[in-house]
Amino acid sequence: MTDPTVTLAHGNGGRAMQDLITGVLVNQFQPQGPTVLEDQARLPLAELLTLGDRLAFTTDSFVVDPIFFPGSDIGALAVNGTVNDLAVSGAIPCYLTCALILEEGLPMDTLRRVVESMARAAQQAGVTIVTGDTKVVPRGGADKLFINTAGIGVMRSGVTPAATQLQPGDVVLVNGPIGNHGAAILVARGELALETDLQSDCQPLHGLVEAIVAVCPEVRAMRDATRGGLATVLNEFADSAQVGIRLLEEQLPVEAAVEGLCELLGLDPLYLANEGKVVVVVPPDRAAAVLAAMRSHPLGTHSQIIGEVTQGSGVYLKTGFGTERIIDRLVDDQLPRIC
């Protein structure tokens, strides 16, 4: 594998493509067994059955720009994003796919870096990337590279979180400061000529979720607050269960630099993306135990109770002044503003 850049030949099914698959992808992802190069992954059912009683199955595509950003990159994001979508169902993530759409001319070193990052992230999350696909599009047909991952996990018996189960009185928690990923990406794009020490919070949540369901298998709902931020997840929750949610502004964890960025650009951290934050809703009598379990996990040391489920509808934020304001769904992406 000595080509300096990706060419259309790497997607045409011939020798160059074979070299790419074996030399870059299989070499890194290290799926096991004699059928590795077949057209499909073959998964042992009996092993999966020892972990739980249902499968969770999800897919997500990753087109982030820039592809490398403070704290992470598109490769780790593609693994963690799908791992987290599985984990928040209460599942143990097991297998991932990896489909790459590469732009002709992409430096091979860039691709290697991304694939290595995917492999590291998969190892950290305890999943194996077992099958995939590679396409190359002419220059300009895609922006550098896009990744799609699908994932399969096994759902632990007796754990059935779902947004429809929220009940008035339930307690809402989050595992740390919000908005870091969205803020880091905004700065990394460079258009606003800003500099911060902010890092994306991109991380796999399976371990934290394990700690949560260990103390509270009856957890009502869990969701990772990615695009659209915390506000979007809470609105989805409230709509699904036809309840209201009241947030406490003074309890919301926001890092100083995220707050500074939001003040400067007129943005709201509630709507900024996260890539390692899970919103958890639990019955009131389990809140203390869950908070303690979350805080004793490395990815949850800054966990907070941020609100409660109420009668009614919609998401409200109780300000420090004792007043309430509606936290609506986002109409459109937040744009920096001057007025």
Binding site: F321, T323, E324, R325
Partner: peptide, 14 residues
């Protein structure tokens, strides 16, 4: 900007 702050903090209700 004042309008924004008044709504953000819910000052009218006070």
């Amino acid at each position: 900007g004042h309008t924004h702050a008044i709504f953000k903090y819910g000052l009218e209700a006070l």
